[in-house]
Design a protein around this nucleic acid. Sequence first.
DNA 1: CCCAGATGAGACAAGAACGTCTCGTCGAGA
DNA 2: TCTCGACGAGACGTTCTTGTCTCATCTGGG
Lengths: 192, 192
Amino acid sequence: MSHLGYCRLMPFDHEQVLRSAAALLTRKSTATMDEVARAAGIGRATLHRHFAGRDALVGALESLGIQEFEAALDAAGLDEGSAEDGLRRLITAVQPSAGLLSFLVTENQLFEGDDVDEGWSRLDARVAAFFRRGQERGEFRIDLTPAWLTEALYGLIGSCAWSVQAGRVAAQDFPHMIVELLLGGARRSVEK
Amino acid sequence: MSHLGYCRLMPFDHEQVLRSAAALLTRKSTATMDEVARAAGIGRATLHRHFAGRDALVGALESLGIQEFEAALDAAGLDEGSAEDGLRRLITAVQPSAGLLSFLVTENQLFEGDDVDEGWSRLDARVAAFFRRGQERGEFRIDLTPAWLTEALYGLIGSCAWSVQAGRVAAQDFPHMIVELLLGGARRSVEK
DNA sequence: CCCAGATGAGACAAGAACGTCTCGTCGAGA
DNA sequence: TCTCGACGAGACGTTCTTGTCTCATCTGGG
């Protein structure tokens, strides 16, 4: 081949491996490199050929999660229309990545990353800014800080992803459950 | 000494060790037995004398968490007064255990316990039943299932505990942030 | 048909953590 | 004062994981 280092069919799907790794690590954060490899249907040696060690693997997962979350933020068009609709679009867009994100969120709670932190803080800022704009526009209450709403969003995404995986919530209800709880709360429309 | 196996001053505070272990494992779930011992201010040998291995340690944490959560459920008096007040009392009562509980919740997502599962499913049932009663009394909306509200509660407790620890939320606001978000949601009182 | 590149399987050593053990020390009670 | 019990420190062997290596196999391209 002349250009593009690799152009074979697909003996190794870089992203597919990361997908299955995320799916496994979400459930078992202490999974072995061998388990990750088996879950991806490849050999442990091959896994090491593409990711130099466990750190590199979680680093790649980190990058993938950041990229996907950022793409979801872009695709949601948070500034178009009402904040409520924007949030709804965001959650719908983020649903495919929910498992990966919940893994990364719990992982980062300790992992004092270096440049990774930079990526997350930027995304955190975008989400917090969205909630702040919603407050300024009078759509969101002001007694709940943007930072807390951001963390709560992450927590609910993780909880709902887990509930879906456990069969306690239907996958199609994912956006509804999160948006309705996060925006409307559990209290029944207190008359009016 | 005549009765009560041990009645020394307190060269070893069983519960205090579990406390510090929970605090450490909440932040670093892969912490070493040695790290756990050091964090508790005891030697690794002593730790092994009281907890036969890591499994026994997390088992004890599991029991402690179940016990504390159950005590919080009892103390909250969920059936007295409005469901909203009951939830408020529950969250206030559970705040001291929030760190431990969030650790156990994420831990149990894989740990297919044996008798441990029994304890958690019983507590889950109590919480879900509380939300169901709230629905039947017309206080909670019915489009959010009790199972989801239960999981969401756990998620918000974990998120808020983490936010407090990270300094993004004041500890005194813990109950308010959770209750207001869980019950009222972020949407501003949609006029009336 | 032959060759290059990538894979899977397995062997190998290094390191980490675990669980157990012994030993010296210290404090409380007899 | 003496003794018993528990602790801290540390050594030791075992197990598990990791990272690297080699080798046989397979596939696609020349």
